[in-house]
Design a protein around this nucleic acid. Structure first.
Lengths: 230, 230
DNA sequence: TGAATAGTGTCTTTCAGACAATATGCC
DNA sequence: GGCATATTGTCTGAAAGACACTATTCA
């Protein structure tokens, strides 16, 4: 008996009972000094009235990432943002209706680029701070926690913060992003030294004026693609 | 129309056509100075006679990690080793027979603990060096590459090397593991300094004697669990 | 000129990397 | 004594962290 890759059972792929597969998309943004995610209030059982992470069942011929991008654009109207696969959650009892695996993704977006009220399918959707979340539907608290940890770990050695900022930004805004995600205050001089050493951003010729004080130089990222550094 | 988590389509979960889901397990070990993985020669179409990564279709009520552990123990006879989810590969065309998602896992084991010839289902299975692999079945080259990168990245800031070593080992063996995975030679003094600073291993009272030279102190890991350090 | 944020440099400590001599056990 | 691997410390350069003052704009 040879049980190699889809072998024994693969002969009757169409006969065996299969799990359903969904994608779940953590849509992160920063607003009012907090890391937030898009959550949707459920209007059906199970977990009626609980908040849940947006997602959808994938269809038989749909690519996973395409499915995740569709969820993202349906909920936010946004297309071109960084999207990364997070983890696949497969506990057989995670959905009381039956077996549903979910492949979780996360996206990062600048808060001012999103207007949920204008998105194609954002009814009952809103940004919620990840601090002190209530009990969510299904195993969604676990998924959020996992996603927050990934973002936290990754911001220290990549340029993913760029997803959370507009095209042009002040260094103080960038620092604030790091502080919120890492959950601690950073020294302004050391932060700027480090950012300069990483060579990820460059100044534009524009400045940002607000209030009765010195204007700030606006910077932009040199690369829009993900950069991982050691 | 509310498309929240498995909502619209979830109403008829049993009617929609679902992808099959498999697990794929990269079983790494180090032998003769090379990083190797267990591969299985396929005896059926598609990809007849190609090498492939061991795996299996999961059944409707089977937990993902349980399925991966079953593949691992069927192929190697080994149960208690570190197993980590790697990534989920979902290209709709990755299997010519139909839609099959695969959730890839990887395991690390000490080579001397495995005797494939005695495993429950190791027919056509063997350890193969990850260097210069031929074209494998399906998208398995991509999966191996992804796994190798993960192991490489992780060895620098965790104790996963411990999975590749026997209970007790020489520091020179540990160093060799690092050199093989990182693909470069390390300075013995600096390596030992770093390992000492990490405080992950401790000397036993045993020594290893071989050949006409000074015996080496045997060490063991303080924790069998995964430890991640910054 | 007062208020508020922008912007900058030095010192110290820590960590990584280059580098070589001595120790021990077996034959 | 010869051989083979084990074991150990110093110096240097780079990066991280502590720390405070000046610059600029606007009201």
């Amino acid at each position: 008996m040879y049980t190699t890759i889809p072998e024994t059972k693969a002969r009757n792929l169409k006969e065996i009972e299969k799990p359903a597969v969904s994608v779940t998309v953590l849509i992160f943004s920063i607003n009012k000094g907090k890391l937030e995610i898009v959550l949707v209030k459920r209007v059906r059982t199970p977990f009626m009235d609980f908040l849940s992470i947006p997602g959808d069942i994938i269809s038989i011929d749909q690519d996973l990432e395409d499915a995740a991008r569709k969820v993202l654009s349906d909920k936010t109207g946004i297309h071109d943002v960084y999207l990364e696969q997070l983890y696949t959650f497969g506990d057989p009892r995670r959905d009381p209706r039956g077996r549903v695996l979910t492949v979780a993704y996360f996206a990062l977006l600048p808060h001012n680029s999103v207007d949920l009220s204008k998105a194609p399918d954002a009814l009952h959707a809103s940004f919620v701070s990840v601090d002190g979340l209530p009990k969510l539907a299904f195993d969604h608290n676990q998924i959020v926690d996992y996603g927050v940890e990934r973002v936290k770990g990754k911001i220290e050695y990549s340029n993913i913060a760029h997803g959370l900022l507009p095209e042009k930004f002040r260094l103080s805004e960038l620092q604030k992003i790091y502080e919120i995600i890492l959950g601690k205050n950073l020294d302004k001089r050391n932060f700027r030294k480090k950012i300069a050493a990483l060579n990820l951003v460059e100044p534009t010729k524009e400045v940002y004026r607000e209030g009765n004080h010195r204007p700030a130089t606006l910077y932009k990222f040199k690369s829009k693609d993900l950069v991982i550094y050691d």
